[in-house]
Nucleic acid binder design. Structure first.
Length: 850
RNA sequence: GCGAGAGUGGCGGAACGGCAGACGCGCUAGGUUCAGGACCUAGUGCCCGCAAGGGUGUGGGGGUUCAAGUCCCCCCUCUCGCACCA
């Protein structure tokens, strides 16, 4: 360890420690101390390397739960550790403060959503402070404040000017309980992500952001995110759903209309025996004209489109089809095939029409069997001749084309290109890349959100509000009730507007923004939270971005994390920031369970951070939550386990109590201490081994659980030493022991900030333990003279021996051969081979006979 | 069905291809205490054995290796994600 440059006070303030470890007393004391000193303000030393640690900001529900406590503890240990390691750390916190719960509270209890939110924020902040989370509160961001949401509006207008925000009538997901529409990402298995009510389809005019323009980049750049869990990258990849294929233009025989389909298998084009349209396909109506059964069919089609998309696409939903009477002409061979309407075809993907190739698509195969449609083989297998017998199932593998005129004999892979080329040169199709990703629907018919800064003019259409007019303030005093449209639509003063373009009378847009809009860029605002000319300055953003370590729940794997990546790329394109990706590394922390089940009031197994703080203190809570499991794994909360963490902190406390004499003021320096004895060397080794492990476990592996166990081992070693040494030894090694014990305090500090601050300042220091440099371990102190080496016979441990550390292979072999415990296992056997691994083991391979 | 991850004591969890079970919980015994709690010491995978000692053991089965929880192949179970995407 390095030189002492710390301030030590005189004997006056020393050891005023209470006998008993009492978190109730020391925790508030140090929280005040840090608050008064504005201790956690960012920066001050731009010469250091920057590190941005961020936990996903919470919705201000008013109460912290164990999940919050876990994320924040992880982030806080990291932030504190990195500061001690000499980084310039940004570690901010804020509030995702718009959203439905505030509005619902308003409806139920008649409270003002803003007041409700603000008092929740105050309550949660108090809890966060009680956990000693080292946030720079000067950078706090609250999304429902006008000085934040005006920049939502500013960014919206920027999207609008770039053609990336647009309004369109579209079938959308309506949540009847939340009384608003939802984005595709916010529908899980046909249910609202927030309240789990079944969503229903509706046709409405809505605002969208054109995230689909960024589909390819969002997909490609997943490669850059090596610090993300693979499963999250895979989820995003699936969600974007890139698919390469061919658009093929058929012609409707009866009307002459063009009918385009998308397929990934143009090589099977000659096998088309029918065509299926989505119930919502625009041609359906026209095709039914003149059909004697039109009325009946229309009823069936309406039935189909009434079902939600989710029901229709559920794997176990029966495929239903109905003939329209129309026919489609295949561009490649002029053949006319019947056109049906089918419930399994979705208007939202591809062109809303699919070609039916029953011989080579299992889904089409089953459908054709059901409806007695012809099956024509056009791809033959290289292994078995499929033409010999009727197919029992679709042949979906690649093969060689048959029954396909000029393409006969081509392998599928080549035929895909050949058919596409043929279609392209005949104006009947093109190569085409499609995505499953849809544009992001951002309007919400709710009050408590960012007003969309648009004025709807009868003459000019949607016109952006002038930048100088921002923010469009959310009016107060709105009476909230359950309603089909935004409550803002009832507010005449808000509604009334003048068209910025023509000056005519116009209506203000009453939809508000999805709250995911707020959370898509808040991490940039933290870099420059007071900025009032722009959302943030480029300089600040470029200094801090990307977030080096982001920590949060896996539930945002697609939603928030995809939207944020989209925003970051847009900001980059606009020259507002240089970051390509927002989050360098991502940690998806596991959930907190109790007794193997999710905590819930009905199960009566809820534990709250408040209870833990009241009973054991924040330090114990933090320590346990980090010790019980690695951060990315689910954690089972265990009351007895918490007890164990509390016990450990008391054990540390007692160590200092019992040996306070070590800390009486000294003038000696380390060099004047007598040479260390064997016991002391062992202790020093334990110290540096622990130091090494804690450093590596936090910095490289994020394994806080093993880091803590290393500190425990260190403390155990200190107890053993103290038991073994006598008063004289203790006295003469006082400076050495002092340094050892101070190391305990320093490396425990990121985990348990209060107790360590108390112990540290009780040792006589006037500067905070949290301002100390993280000690470097000395590899020389890890060395030992002798090591125990295992002797194996045929891979089984048969003996152990103590040999000099420096012993080479030859010496090991010598010693192993003569080892008494090993002899019996070698009797009557021949030694075939001996492997010696210095410092570890010797393995003797022996067998019977010669 | 497709994709990803995971299966280790009574429990949470450790183990650069090199002594499986660190650390903690729980449990057992002893000490201390009027008692309880707290604390200290020792022990604690399973089986046989009084013991010394031996056997066995990381979901199952194969393989590579002097050596496998770890690498390769097959299978089973669980969790998560996607799921008629044309």
């Amino acid at each position: 360890m390095g030189d002492k440059k710390r301030n030590i006070k005189g004997s006056g303030g020393l050891w005023e420690m209470k006998e008993e470890y009492s978190p109730k007393q020391i925790e508030p004391k140090w929280q005040n101390y840090w608050r008064e000193q504005n201790f956690h303000r960012t920066g001050g030393d731009e010469g250091k390397q920057k590190y941005y640690v961020l936990e996903m900001f919470p919705y201000p529900s008013g109460k912290l739960h164990m999940g919050h406590m876990r994320v924040y503890s992880i982030g806080d240990v990291l932030a504190r550790f990195l500061r001690m390691r000499g980084y310039n750390v940004l570690h901010p916190m804020g509030w995702d403060a718009f959203g439905l719960p505030a509005e619902n509270a308003a409806i139920e209890h008649g409270v003002d959503p803003g007041q409700w939110t603000n008092s929740n924020i105050a309550a949660m902040k108090e809890q966060q402070d009680a956990l000693a989370l080292s946030y720079d509160w000067e950078r706090e961001v609250t999304t429902c404040h006008p000085d934040y949401y005006r920049w939502n509006q500013w960014l919206f207008l920027l999207f609008f000017k770039n053609g990336l925000a647009y309004k369109r009538k579209a079938p959308v997901n309506w949540c009847p309980s939340c009384q608003t529409v939802l984005a595709n990402e916010q529908v899980e298995n046909g249910a609202c992500w927030r309240c789990s009510s079944a969503v229903a389809p509706r046709e409405l005019e809505q605002w969208f952001l054109k995230i689909t323009d960024y589909a390819q980049r969002l997909l490609d750049d997943l490669k850059l995110l090596e610090g993300w869990p693979q499963r999250v990258r895979v989820m995003q990849e699936n969600w974007i759903g890139r698919s390469e294929g061919t658009d093929i233009v058929f012609t409707v025989q009866e009307t002459g209309d063009e009918l385009t389909v998308f397929t990934t298998r143009p090589d099977t084009l000659f096998g088309v025996t029918y065509m299926v349209l989505a119930p919502e396909h625009p041609l359906v109506g026209k095709l039914l004209e003149g059909n004697p059964r039109a009325a009946e069919i229309r009823r069936i089609v309406q039935e189909m489109s009434r079902e939600s998309e989710i029901d229709r696409t559920a794997a176990d939903t029966e495929k239903v089809g109905v003939l329209t009477g129309g026919h489609a002409v295949n561009p490649v061979n002029g053949e006319a095939v019947p056109i049906l309407v089918g419930n399994y075809v979705l208007m939202s993907y591809g062109t809303g029409a699919v070609m039916g190739v029953p011989a080579h698509d299992q889904r089409d195969f089953l459908f054709a069997k059901e409806y007695d449609l012809p099956i024509r083989l056009v791809i033959n297998s290289l292994q078995t001749n499929l033409q010999a017998t009727p197919l029992a199932e679709a042949y979906e593998e690649p093969g060689v084309l048959v029954n396909s005129d000029q393409f006969d004999g081509l392998p599928s892979e080549e035929a895909i290109k050949a058919v596409t080329d043929w279609l392209a040169s005949n104006g009947k199709g093109n190569h085409r890349v499609r995505y499953r990703l849809r544009d992001w629907l951002i309007s919400r018919q709710r009050y408590w959100g960012t007003p969309i800064p648009i004025i709807n003019c009868a003459a000019c259409g949607p016109v952006p509000v002038q930048e100088s007019e921002l923010p469009v303030l959310l009016p107060g005093g709105i009476s909230l009730c359950d309603n089909q449209q935004s409550p803002l639509a009832d507010n005449a003063a808000f509604l009334q507007a003048t068209c910025p373009k023509c000056g005519g009378e116009a209506r203000r847009e009453t939809d508000t923004m999805d709250t995911f809009f707020c959370s898509s860029w808040y991490y940039v605002r933290y870099t420059d939270p007071q900025q009032d000319k722009l959302p943030f300055s480029k300089e600040s953003a470029d200094y801090w971005l990307p977030v080096d370590q982001y920590i949060g729940g896996i539930e945002h794997a697609v939603l928030h994390l995809l939207y944020s990546r989209f925003f970051t790329k847009f900001l980059y394109d606009q020259g507002l920031s240089s970051a390509q990706e927002p989050f360098q590394r991502l940690l998806a922390q596991g959930m907190v369970y109790k007794d193997g089940a999710k905590m819930s009031k009905s199960k009566g197994n809820v534990v709250t951070p408040d209870e833990i703080i009241a009973r054991y203190g924040a330090d114990t809570g933090r320590l346990f939550i980090l010790f019980a499991a690695p951060p990315e794994k689910d954690l089972d909360w265990n009351d007895q386990g918490v007890e164990g963490s509390y016990r450990f902190l008391r054990r540390v406390w007692r160590l200092f109590q019992q040996h306070r004499d070590i800390f009486t003021p000294v003038t000696e320096t380390v060099s004047s201490t007598p040479a260390l004895g064997k016991k002391e060397e062992t202790l020093r080794r334990a110290c540096h081994a622990s130091l090494k492990r804690v450093t590596v476990d936090i910095e490289e592996r994020f394994n806080f659980n093993t880091a803590i166990s290393a500190i425990m081992e260190f403390v155990n070693a200190l107890y053993i030493y103290m038991n073994e040494c006598n008063g004289d030894e203790k006295k003469s090694y006082r400076p050495f022991l002092r340094e050892i014990m101070e190391t305990v305090v320093i490396i425990l500090a990121p985990f348990a900030p209060h107790i360590t601050e108390e112990l540290w300042q009780s040792c006589g220091y006037t500067t905070s333990v949290h301002r100390q440099a993280w000690p470097a371990y000395n590899p020389n102190y890890l060395l030992v003279d002798e090591v125990e080496v295992v002797v194996q016979v045929n891979g089984k441990v048969r003996g152990r021996m103590l040999v000099p550390t420096a012993a080479g292979e030859d010496e090991l072999l010598e010693a192993a051969r003569g080892h008494e415990k090993v002899q019996p296992f070698l009797d009557g056997k021949k030694i075939k081979k001996i492997i010696a691994v210095p410092g570890k083991l010797v393995n003797i391979v022996a067998a019977d006979g010669n």
